[in-house]
């Protein structure tokens, strides 16, 4: 399948189940909401080293938030629920509670409950105030700046982590431009985050390593400087590869992000130096979710 001169390889991204949640963080200004969002989702590129994968899902206007202030919605994913229950209060306590003017609300109503203020309310040393309206409880914690308002807990979803596309381009500059365009387009999709820096990862990995104790190592099949020395997936014209990793609250959300990402890359096309789009997998035996690139593109794939 070729679109606008870009080969969409007959391959699939292989993804894993993750559990995730959404937080709505508001602040007095859009900037502070964004700051809180960035800090909270910082150092959360990969569960391998960060314990979770997180990102800003969307920027929210005042009319969209529970308290009428500008905000952001964040998604945080972990490999299991226990881990999620650990990382969310940690990040809430270190990054949102501390950030000027913020408040934090549940972004998911259903599913198992992930503690928010339920855990960190004790920071208020007995001065915390609880309010329960209907079935929903929130807390007010006196802080030096005023009050930190935070929902008791949030729901959770069984999501999908590790969706991806690989952008193969002639030059590093072309690969980066295509990746930026893809990340920008994919970031508009609801229910997904791209946890790596700027949404892009340049150090894609394969499973395992020659070194004991390393679970992952550089994806040598896609490293241009190793072309020929290892079994390579790169044609001779490919000078650089960028990967975009996608975590989402559902299979459909990840598939949609994959689709708009590929479209954005294809829009840049061969003229922009893009060679092909590929995806990372482990042979299909490890992850239950398979995002088949050509299937996802369907009739949008263009002429062969």
């Amino acid at each position: 399948m070729i679109r606008n001169g870009v080969e969409i390889r007959d391959n699939f991204a292989e993804a894993f189940p993750m559990v995730g949640t959404r937080l709505i963080v508001t602040a007095d200004t859009p900037d502070w909401a964004l700051t809180a969002g960035r800090v909270t989702t910082g150092f959360a590129t990969s569960v391998i080293g960060c314990g979770c994968e997180a990102g800003i899902e969307r920027v929210l206007g005042p009319e969209e938030t529970p308290d009428g202030r500008p905000g952001v919605s964040l998604l945080i994913f972990a490999m299991d629920f226990k881990q999620l229950k650990t990382v969310v209060p940690l990040r809430l306590g270190q990054c949102i509670l501390t950030c000027p003017t913020t408040a934090c609300y549940a972004g998911v109503e259903t599913g198992k409950r992930v503690p928010l203020a339920k855990t960190i309310r004790y920071f208020a040393d007995g001065h915390q105030i609880s309010k329960k309206i209907g079935d929903k409880r929130f807390w007010r914690l006196p802080v030096m700046e005023g009050e930190f308002v935070c929902d008791e807990d949030t729901g959770s979803v069984e999501g999908v982590g590790g969706g991806n596309i690989l952008i193969l381009a002639r030059t590093r500059g072309a690969a980066l431009r295509a990746a930026e365009a893809a990340a920008a387009a994919m970031g508009k999709v609801e229910g997904v985050i791209l946890p790596f820096p700027g949404g892009v990862v340049r150090s894609g990995s394969k499973v395992g390593s020659k070194y004991k104790g390393l679970f992952a190592s550089t994806n040598d099949a896609y490293c241009p400087t190793l072309r020929g020395t290892v079994p390579s997936q790169l044609t001779a014209e490919t000078g650089s590869v960028m990967e975009i990793v996608i975590d989402g609250i559902s299979f459909d959300a990840v598939a949609e992000a994959t689709r708009v990402g590929i479209l954005a890359v294809c829009d840049i096309g061969a003229e922009g130096g893009v060679v092909a789009i590929d995806a990372g997998n482990y042979g299909g035996n490890l992850g239950p979710f398979h995002f088949k690139l050509r299937e996802i593109m369907g009739n949008e794939g263009g002429a062969a």
Binding site: P66, D67, G68, R69, K131, I133, K136, R140, G146, E147
Partner: peptide, 13 residues
């Protein structure tokens, strides 16, 4: 006091 909770309550309730 400036209270974030005010508008939260006004909207939720």
């Amino acid at each position: 006091q400036e209270l974030v909770a005010l508008q939260l309550m006004a909207r939720r309730v």
